[in-house]
Amino acid sequence: MPPSDDVVLRVENLVKHFPLKRSGSLRAGGVVKAVDGVSFELRRGETLGVVGESGCGKSTLARTLVGLEKPTGGSVRFGDAVVHTARGRELRALRRRIQIVLQDPYTSLNPRRTIREILTQPFEIHPDVLPKARRTARISELLDLVGLDPSLHLDRYPHQFSGGQRQRIGIARALALQPDVVVCDEPVSALDVSVQAQVVNLLERLQKELGVAYVFIAHDLSVVRHISDRVAVMYLGKLVESGPGAPLYDAPRHPYTKALLSAVPVPEPASRTNRQRILLAGDPPSPVDPPSGCRFRTRCWQATDTCATQEPPLAGPEHPVACHYPLAA
């Protein structure tokens, strides 16, 4: 185990509820339990992958981690600083240390700014990081780092770049202030298959060179396995299982993880016939009123009466799981 002072981000019981709009709603006054008690630690230079189906709360988690949403409960700590109560100088330092890369390379860059302006902006917000005279050189370095030629690209606008190139620019911007943590929310989902690998390789190389830690959020389980040291599986606002990639993928302990993995198509026609696939019935329930007890019980083939009344905690040392009857390894 790495020493505990190696933890860069400590997330404790994080909760984010959104109030339901009143007008016309049958359940006026209710809340969307988008993130509902998530805890994890992120260590220096590691990648924590977060997977889960649409609407399970991945983006809300990402936005809350970097301070774009105010949590309903719980905390995110970076060293001694608490992300959502920090003020003044401490807050500025945090904003610099924790960055985010978003899914859509088409909308996350301001279309009216050149790449030079987009990459200069972080230094204008945090002028103490680098004296003005050295910024131009630093921006060229950044573009170099993400594999774009500064002499060709600095004075162009986002629309003059391909999706993969725009995503590189988004990554360069996130890395400008030398953060310790970058939260990537579906950074390759909008990219073509043939371009995805370029961005995944880039993120991995930058991590080796700069020691940055990633929270890598995606719904593509293959990409997450490839890039992550540890993986957390999310279902209806909660983590149901987490652990190092190999045991989690090869011997999942939560029924949901097992079903999710078995549903991923494997690009090998020969293995078609002998694959055991668990077809889950139905869709994930609404996060407005999640099932009592275990939230997965409405789709779980193992559910018992206990599952309906008692919520299983995420428990265990290396490979924790939130299930009353975890699967054998």
Partner: peptide, 20 residues
């Protein structure tokens, strides 16, 4: 070659350079 696989961990992915 460029596809990551859920049943495998590869060191580095093959990346087709450029874009369509």
């Amino acid at each position: 070659a460029s596809m990551p696989r859920v049943d495998r961990t590869d060191e580095e992915l093959y990346a087709i350079p450029g874009a369509p």
